[in-house]
Computed example of a mutant assay.
Amino acid sequence: MRRRLDLAGALVAKPAVVVLDEPTTGLDPRGRLDTWQVIGDLVADGTTVLLTTQYLEEADQLANNIMVIDKGKVIAEGTADRLKSQVGGERLELVVSEPAELATASRVLSYVGSAEPTVDEHTRRVEVLVDTGPKALIEALRMLDTESVTVTDVGLHRPTLDDVFLALTGHMAEESDAAGADKQGTKQ
C-alpha cells in the first residue's frame, strides 16, 4: 500500500517526467501488474518515465530504451529486441519422460541445433540454441517421435534480458550485487 500511495502522490500534479526507483519491489503479483498498467498509461499519455529496476522482465515489458549498467558503467543500450539480438538465436527446450531418453534427445537436438545441447539429468531437460526457430522445433519433434521418445514439455524461447545481462557481464545481476556487498563488507 505504501508503494501505491507513493506512486499516486507523485502523479497528482501530472508531471512531464517521472522517476521510479524499483517501483514493484515487495509487491504481490496483482500489485505488480497494476503498477505496470499505471506506468504504461503514463507513457501512453506522453509522460517520460525513467525507471530503475533489477527485474529485467519488468524492463522488457515497460521500457522503450534500456541501458544495461554493470559496476556503475553503461555496457549496452538499446531496445529490448536489439539487446536480445546481440545474444543470438532462440533456444529449443524439451523435457523427456524417462531419464533413459536423455541421450537420444541430446543426439537429436545436436542435429537440429547450432551449438552443443545442454542436459540437466535431474529435470530431464535438454536445450540447444537453434537458428531455424520453428523449423528446428518441428524437425526435432518428428525425429523424437520416430525414436519413440516421449516429450512431456517443449518450447522455443527467445533470449530474455536476463540472458542478455549474463552474456554481457558474465554473471547474473544478483551475483554482482552480492559480490559488491561482500567487498564492501570486507573493507569496513
Score class of each variant (00 low, 15 high):
residue 146 T to P: 00
residue 35 T to N: 07
residue 11 L to R: 06
residue 98 E to H: 13
residue 88 G to L: 11
residue 147 E to P: 00
residue 156 L to E: 10
residue 11 L to W: 09
residue 175 E to S: 14
residue 170 G to E: 09
residue 135 K to D: 14
residue 142 R to F: 06
residue 128 V to Y: 11
residue 142 R to A: 05
residue 3 R to H: 12
residue 125 R to V: 11
residue 21 D to Y: 07
residue 168 L to P: 00
residue 40 G to K: 14
residue 124 R to S: 07
residue 127 E to H: 13
residue 169 T to Q: 09
residue 165 F to A: 07
residue 127 E to R: 15
residue 93 E to K: 13
residue 99 P to C: 13
residue 35 T to C: 08
residue 34 D to W: 04
residue 156 L to T: 06
residue 24 T to F: 04
residue 29 P to R: 09
residue 111 Y to S: 14
residue 62 L to M: 11
residue 170 G to Y: 09
residue 180 G to F: 14
residue 183 K to I: 14
residue 141 L to K: 00
residue 148 S to M: 12
residue 32 R to A: 03
residue 65 N to E: 12
residue 35 T to P: 04
residue 18 V to L: 15
residue 103 A to Q: 15
residue 39 I to Q: 05
residue 83 L to D: 02
residue 20 L to Y: 02
residue 49 V to H: 09
residue 141 L to I: 07
residue 99 P to I: 15
residue 115 A to C: 03
residue 11 L to M: 11
residue 76 A to D: 03
residue 137 L to P: 00
residue 125 R to P: 01
residue 66 I to M: 06
residue 134 P to M: 10
residue 159 P to W: 10
residue 85 S to R: 13
residue 124 R to C: 08
residue 102 L to Y: 14
residue 115 A to G: 11
residue 117 P to Q: 13
residue 6 D to G: 15
residue 150 T to H: 08
residue 82 R to N: 03
residue 123 T to P: 05
residue 18 V to H: 01
residue 91 R to L: 12
residue 166 L to C: 02
residue 93 E to Y: 06
residue 140 A to Y: 03
residue 188 Q to N: 14
residue 153 D to I: 01
residue 165 F to Q: 04
residue 101 E to Y: 04
residue 96 V to R: 14
residue 40 G to P: 00
residue 75 I to A: 05
residue 45 D to W: 01
residue 96 V to P: 08
residue 131 D to Y: 01
residue 80 A to Q: 01
residue 129 L to I: 02
residue 12 V to H: 02
residue 127 E to V: 05
residue 35 T to G: 03
residue 46 G to D: 07
residue 173 A to H: 08
residue 33 L to V: 11
residue 172 M to C: 00
residue 54 Q to M: 10
residue 17 V to P: 01
residue 94 L to H: 06
residue 99 P to R: 15
residue 69 I to L: 15
residue 96 V to Y: 11
residue 166 L to M: 12
residue 36 W to G: 02
residue 8 A to C: 10
residue 69 I to T: 02
residue 28 D to R: 03
residue 126 V to S: 10
residue 175 E to R: 13
residue 68 V to H: 00
residue 187 K to R: 15
residue 59 A to I: 10
residue 22 E to I: 08
residue 147 E to R: 11
residue 50 L to G: 01
residue 165 F to P: 02
residue 156 L to D: 09
residue 112 V to A: 05
residue 104 T to C: 13
residue 187 K to I: 15
residue 16 A to V: 03
